[in-house]
Amino acid sequence: MDPIWWWVIAAVVLVAVVLLLVPQMRRRQEESRRQKAAEVREEAQDHSQVVREREAHAAQAEAEARQARAEAEQKLAEAEKLETEGHRRGRTAAEAREEYDEKLQRADELDPDVDTDGDGRRDRDGLGDGDGRRDRDDLPGRDRDGDGLADRDRGGFGDGDGRLDRDDLPGRDRGDVQHNT
Rank of each mutant, 00 (worst) to 15 (best):
P3Q: 07
I4T: 13
I4A: 14
W5F: 13
A11S: 09
V12H: 06
V12I: 11
V18K: 08
V22C: 09
R26E: 09
R26C: 13
E31P: 01
E31C: 03
R34F: 06
Q35N: 09
Q35W: 05
A37R: 10
A37K: 10
E39T: 11
R41T: 06
A44R: 13
D46N: 15
H47W: 06
Q49P: 01
R52P: 01
R54K: 10
E55W: 03
A58F: 09
A61D: 01
A61M: 09
A65T: 05
A68V: 01
A72P: 03
Q74D: 12
K75A: 07
K75P: 01
A77S: 00
A79D: 02
E83K: 12
H87Y: 05
H87K: 10
R89D: 06
R89P: 02
T92S: 13
T92D: 14
E95M: 03
A96K: 05
A96W: 09
R97P: 00
D101K: 06
E102Y: 07
R106W: 11
E109L: 15
P112G: 00
G120P: 04
D129Q: 08
D129R: 04
D131E: 07
G132A: 03
R133P: 00
R136C: 05
R136A: 15
D137V: 14
G141M: 02
D143I: 00
R144C: 02
R144M: 02
D145T: 10
D145I: 03
A150K: 11
R152H: 06
R154Y: 06
R163C: 08
R163A: 09
L164I: 14
D165K: 07
D167S: 13
D167T: 15
D168V: 15
D168P: 02
R174F: 08
H179S: 03
N180G: 15
N180H: 14
